[in-house]
């Protein structure tokens, strides 16, 4: 694996893309690694695709944005279309399997294209609110940017105040992380 892992996450506003990106880079930073995260922003982001660029490395990261992602996760149809440009021959492209009729839009030049049922699992097994945490689990499994334990610590750091009020939420979030990781592990096995 090369030095810097480049991840593009995209979804609709409200899908929690930016908070996942924020927690992931914080986890890496807390492990002493170098991380860089930049969200897309503009005057009309309400209603636009929410996009997060993350890079994690053992040395200082280069340019804040990149052309060739190692991992792309797209959570909506518009996100699939928007992120195709970051795909190249070594990219793992993950999208949520709840999207229907998206086949023609999927990138053809990726190393691998994976559909994972994150939304379904969030709704049926866990809670719709932890959809983005499942995605985070998947991203971590796919890139190994941080250990699962470190990821949990970062979630705890970010959401600890909520867990304090309702300890069940901790379990729910950790479960979501693990389920996300499993989804990728199963598909890549």
């Amino acid at each position: 694996m090369k030095g810097t892992v480049k991840i593009a996450l995209a979804g609709e506003g409200g899908q929690g893309v930016q908070s996942v990106a924020g927690i992931m880079v914080e986890a890496a930073n807390d492990e002493g690694r170098e991380a860089l995260y930049i969200p897309n922003f503009g005057v009309e982001q309400r209603g636009g695709v929410s996009l997060a660029f993350c890079q994690i490395s053992d040395e200082k990261v280069g340019a804040p944005k990149f052309r060739d992602a190692d991992l792309v996760i797209a959570l909506s149809e518009r996100a699939v279309r928007r992120t195709r440009q970051y795909v190249h021959k070594d990219t793992l492209f993950i999208y949520d399997s709840s999207m229907q009729g998206i086949e023609d839009e999927l990138p053809r030049n990726a190393k691998k294209v994976l559909a994972i049922p994150a939304l379904e699992i969030a709704k049926k097994e866990l809670h719709p609110r932890v959809f983005n945490i499942i995605i985070m689990g998947a991203a971590i499994e796919a890139t190994k940017i941080v250990e699962m334990e470190q990821a949990k610590k970062a979630v705890e750091k970010r959401l600890g105040y909520k867990f304090a009020q309702n300890p069940k939420l901790r379990e729910l979030n950790f479960k979501a992380l693990e389920r996300g990781a499993e989804l990728v592990k199963e598909s890549l096995a």
């Binding site: 880079v25 170098e34 991380a35 860089l36 995260y37 930049i38 969200p39 990261v61 944005k65």
Partner: peptide, 10 residues
């Protein structure tokens, strides 16, 4: 610039 303004790094 806007990237330096808005990105996060150590």
């Amino acid at each position: 610039d806007g990237y330096q303004a808005k990105m996060r790094e150590s």
